Every structure is written in C-alpha cells, then in structure tokens.
Amino acid sequence: MVTMRNDITKVKEINIELIKSALKNLGTATKAQIAEATDISVATCGKILNELCHTGEALEAAVASGGYGRPAKRYVYNGNYAFIACIYAEMVKGRTKISTVVSNLLGELQGESTQEADDVTYETLEEQIAVLLRKYPKLRAVAIGIPGYITNDVVDLCNFVSLMGVPLQSRLQEKFSEVRILVENDMNAAAFGFYRSKDMDKNATIAFIYSPVEPVKKLEVKMKEREDEKRNKLLSFGINFGSGFVSGGKILRGATGFAGEVAFLPMPCIAEKKEIEVTVETMAYIIGSIVPILNPEIIALTGVFFNEENIEKIRVSCLRLISPQHMPQIMMRDDIHDDYVNGLLNLALEELACSVALVERHI
C-alpha cells in the first residue's frame, strides 16, 4: 500500500506565499481579487489576510465601493514589515572590499555601502551584521556571499583564507539568534539572481559562468601540478573560473557543495595557442562539459573577457563539441553585481519565509 502524506500545514504555507505574492503584484486588492489571482477560495484568502493583518505584514487599505451595499475591504502588502540584507566580500584590483545592501520585503532599497578591509574573517562579518542590526532594527534575514564553497556548513576552498575551516553560518546564527543567516557561494547566488531576474518558467534549468579577469595563462603548467599544489596556486591568485546552476527554481549545490567548481575540470592541453584563443577554447570546453550533464536551456556568461565577438567565437567552438539541438542559448551579462545582489536578497527572503513557516508549525 502506498503511503500518502496529507500535510495540511504545508498546504497552508504554500497558500500564504501565494497570497503574499499576489498582494505584492496587485498592489492593493480585495479578497475576491486575490482569490481569482491565486485560485484559492475567498474564505481561505480572508482567513489568511486576517492573520497577515494581525501580524502587520498586510494592512487594510481604503475600501472599494461600487455604490451599492457594503464596500469590500482592500488590502496592501506592508513592505516595511521587515528588512532583509546581503553582505558580500570580493577582491577588486587587488583590494578587499565588503559591501552591504538592505531592502524591504518589496525589494525597495533601504541602504547600501562598500568599504575596504585588510582581510575577511569571521569577526569581520560578525561586526558587519552587528552594525546592520543597530541601524535597521527590523532586519530579519541576512544572506552572505563568499568566493568559495561550503561543505557541511564549513567553508572549504575560499579566496579569503581566514574563512577556510570556519563553520560560518552556524556560528553567526548562534550569535544572532533573532536573525536568519544564510551563507552562500558567490556563483550560486549570482545564478539564482539571474534566474529570478528573467522571470523564467519554474522548471527552467540555467547555468551561470564567470570568466577570468584576464585571459587564462599557463594552463598546461597548471594541469601538471599535484592536487595540493593546485590548491595553493588557486588560493594565490583567486579561482579563475566559477559557475552556478539552477534547476526547477532551486540551486544545485551537490552532495558536498562542490557543484559548479569548474576550475577543477581537467582542462585540455591548449597552451600552444594565443591567450584569447586559450580562453575561448577553455570556455567552450567548460560549456561542453556542462551541457551533457545539466542540459541547460540558457548559459549566462559574465566577466570582462566577454563581448559579442568573443561569445560568438565560444558558440562556434562549442558546436564542435555539442550537437546543435542540444546547444543552449548563450547570453552575456554585463556585470555580475546586479545578479549577485539580486540572488542574495532573494535567498534572504526565502530564508525569512522558511523561518516564519517553522514558527507557525510550532504555534
């Protein structure tokens, strides 16, 4: 006999998110309008809206009167009910920079800042969150982006060596119990931000690839290094290639958080060619390795190397490895920043929604 799970609580959580989303999109709406937009009964919409108004996440707006009978109540989503934030660290022309962006629940910017730092450590990030909490008491979720991957909550290979071996998310969560904390790989966040910005079908599969700042050098030498030497070399100048994958609305992190670390692909021996040709062939090889496994519809490329001319060269080179019917659309993104921030803020919003759902389950 097949066991079917009837999770009423989960259904309610889905309905709540649907109603919130509809209210955000509609601006102001009556229960009947929200019911029509969500395919949820008017009675259920009314009950959930009452709960949202009770917590302050929704507000009653001016009533709508048709001239006859009792006017229908209108509701509006309260974007300032809570704030979310993202913090990310990066190397820019040899300088370490830490940036913060704060948004309300409607995506309206509340503040942003960037400052230079000597290093990025656990203490650095702890202080950043403390500063944000003092300035924004309504802050309820923070997503932190790092140029490295996380295995079982511990930061593994990372451009900021001081973070390696640190259980960053759990330590920060223990320190700031009143705020939901999420730590995410930079490429995963950027891929998620790109996915969300394009309003794609929920079942879409995409890949997001970041190029080296300069054309790749000495690939043949790097291929011959032992794994421990390669690790040290990657740390010394930053990981040249990175990627993130999203499928079905979810980031594909893999079993140990290593998914997307394309810098560790065994590269072909192409060091005899010119540097630009090396980068073109390397990117084509990376794409040719991703397509048979992930089969993405779109691959977004970002980084200073990419322009229309180079992307066309990459596409032509890819077609030597990939049949045309399986060739994904290749799109250029001018700057990783917007996708990165968008991804982190959306992840913070999801983390906040999950925390609210957990609280409701225990009420």
Rank of each mutant, 00 (worst) to 15 (best):
260 G>Q: 03
235 L>A: 05
255 A>Y: 07
225 E>T: 09
252 L>P: 00
247 S>V: 06
242 G>E: 06
252 L>F: 04
243 S>T: 02
227 E>M: 13
260 G>K: 01
240 N>V: 09
225 E>R: 11
244 G>C: 04
240 N>A: 14
240 N>Y: 09
237 F>W: 10
246 V>Q: 01
234 L>W: 12
229 E>L: 09
230 K>I: 02
256 T>L: 05
253 R>F: 00
238 G>Y: 07
260 G>D: 04
240 N>E: 13
260 G>H: 02
234 L>H: 11
232 N>E: 14
227 E>H: 07
237 F>A: 13
244 G>S: 04
229 E>K: 15
234 L>V: 10
232 N>G: 10
244 G>V: 02
237 F>L: 10
248 G>W: 07
258 F>Y: 14
254 G>W: 03
260 G>C: 03
231 R>E: 09
250 K>M: 14
242 G>W: 05
263 A>Y: 08
232 N>W: 12
233 K>D: 15
257 G>K: 02
242 G>L: 06
234 L>G: 00
240 N>C: 08
252 L>C: 07
233 K>F: 15
228 D>R: 10
238 G>R: 04
226 R>W: 09
235 L>G: 07
243 S>M: 06
248 G>Y: 09
250 K>D: 11
255 A>C: 08
245 F>P: 00
263 A>R: 02
256 T>Q: 08
247 S>K: 14
239 I>A: 08
242 G>T: 04
263 A>C: 12
